[in-house]
């Protein structure tokens, strides 16, 4: 038991470290990218078909990489950003990069669910595009974004299982090294249990927060 805990605790720490940081970067830059994607759409507040197409291509390309390949393919970039290509910190770079386009689509779709009439009402009051984004689009989509962040985080936890490839550690890596390579079923099973508990807790919290916000609004 003690051996298990000694293995699991640091691995869980690494998983959380990678996932939380990557989700954070993904949400910040993904929101910017997602907002740009939406507002440049034809007929929206800052229509710009050329920019929209370019952004959309970038997002699609970013999302088509299988994560394992992305991790290896962007190593030169990882070296520039993190100073190294191996370790938990280095794994955060490809994880964030995979998360940004995903979250951008989440944001784009959340904004798309907002009635355009609300935007026009704000325009009729003289709101600028910046004010519409800050005071209408983003706050109106908070419940949807909270759910989106939850989905994204769970996704990132999944991706982070592959971080072992670049020495990132984490629960997935532990499961592969002990559970798979050493046939240690105890480690394998306990890793799965920890992951299930982690994902369930995060999902439950996200749904709870989103529902609470929605209930107040409806």
């Amino acid at each position: 038991m003690e051996r298990l805990i000694q293995l699991l605790i640091p691995a869980l720490g690494e998983t959380l470290y990678m996932s939380i940081l990557a989700t954070l970067f993904g949400v910040v830059f993904g929101t910017i990218l997602g907002v740009l994607l939406k507002v440049t759409e034809r007929g929206y507040i800052a229509p710009n078909p050329a920019a929209h197409r370019v952004l959309s291509y970038i997002v699609n390309i970013g999302r088509s990489f299988p994560f394992v390949i992305l991790m290896i393919a962007i190593m030169p970039l990882t070296r520039v950003v993190a100073g190294t290509t191996i370790g938990t910190g280095a794994a955060v770079v490809p994880l964030s990069l995979a998360t940004i386009p995903f979250f951008a689509r989440v944001v784009e779709s959340a904004l798309g669910d907002i009635e355009y009439g609300l935007v026009e009402a704000a325009q009729s009051m003289g709101a600028t595009n910046g004010e519409i984004i800050r005071k209408v689009l983003l706050p109106e989509s908070v419940p949807a974004l909270v759910l989106g962040i939850t989905i994204t985080f769970v996704n990132v936890v999944g991706y982070s299982a592959m971080a072992g490839v670049v020495g990132g550690g984490g629960l997935g890596d532990l499961a592969i090294r002990y559970g798979y390579h050493r046939f240690d079923q105890q480690v394998m099973l306990s890793t799965i249990v920890v992951l299930v508990v982690l994902v369930t807790t995060v999902q439950w919290t996200g749904s709870f927060v989103s529902n609470t916000l929605n209930r107040r609004r409806s």
Binding site: E120, A121, M125, E140, V142
Partner: peptide, 21 residues
Amino acid sequence: LRDLRQNTGMIFQHYHLLHHR
């Protein structure tokens, strides 16, 4: 146009109130 809009109120068939406020 911005000044004009701030001097002109508008109401709609479907109200268009902000749900988060």
